[in-house]
Amino acid sequence: MADVFGEVAASYDDARPGYPPALAGSILAYHGRTPSRLVEVGAGTGLATRALLAVGAPMTCVEPDPRMATVLAARFPAVEVVPVRFEAWPPPPGGVPVLACAMAWHWLDPATRCARACDALAPGGTLAVLAHCYDYVDPAQGAAIRAAFESADPVGQADRPDGWFGAEITASGLFTDVRTESFRRDEPLSTAAYQRLVSTFSPQLRRPPALRERVLAAVGATVDGFGGTVTLDLRTTLVLARRPG
């Protein structure tokens, strides 16, 4: 499933919201200095790459989908792009100072992702895992949109709680000084922009084409009913952890 996003590589960067600029400062403050390199796992088309470049370190991006990797390399020519899965990527001898993963931790092998991340880091290195959680500022809008999804596709999609990966990283016992930071902002979207966003979500990409169209029509009609705008409550969770020295 991690490779399915290549289908929407051309529109992914425009449809998905970016990341708070403050992320870079949080990573720098936690790490304690500008790292000699930052590796981003599952970089996609570079939405988080743009924010992570502000850390000031040379970057390597590991992205398994060649279509996403092509867009990423074109947008960030100074970034080294490695088109392989994280599980097949050999970290350099001694490890890397900072390893980041944005909206891709759940695509890594759950049996090995914590151990692989720890092994990829240098002693004392920083792990930074981040993800968005989408909700709605107006509960009535949220209820109506959820009802629209269900009317078109009654098969429910379970959402993970905010920052679920922090509990996993802590429970692994491989890291110390695990910290969580949260950022939030209101994100108003037009009907068309919301439909583009939905088109990039994995549950939508799993649906057959006819069902995709029904879902988009249902949510589009609902947002039109609000006057053509829905405001997302966009929450971003950043979990920072350290490999013991």
Rank of each mutant, 00 (worst) to 15 (best):
V4M: 12
E7C: 03
V8M: 10
V8K: 11
A10I: 08
G18T: 05
P21Q: 03
L23R: 06
R33F: 00
R33K: 14
T34I: 00
V39S: 08
E40S: 06
R50W: 03
A51V: 05
A54S: 10
A57N: 09
M68P: 11
A78N: 10
V81M: 11
P83M: 11
R85Y: 03
E87P: 11
E87H: 04
W89H: 08
P93V: 15
P93K: 06
G94R: 13
L99G: 03
A104L: 06
C114Q: 10
R116T: 05
C118F: 01
P123N: 02
P123T: 07
A128L: 10
H132D: 10
D138C: 04
D138W: 07
A140W: 04
G142E: 01
P161S: 02
D162C: 00
I169H: 08
A171Y: 12
S182C: 01
R185F: 00
R185D: 07
D186G: 04
L189Q: 08
Q195R: 15
R196T: 11
R206D: 07
P208Q: 15
E213R: 12
A217W: 15
V219E: 09
A221V: 05
G225W: 01
G225V: 02
V230C: 05
V230A: 10
L234I: 08
R235S: 04
T236N: 05
A241E: 01
R243N: 00
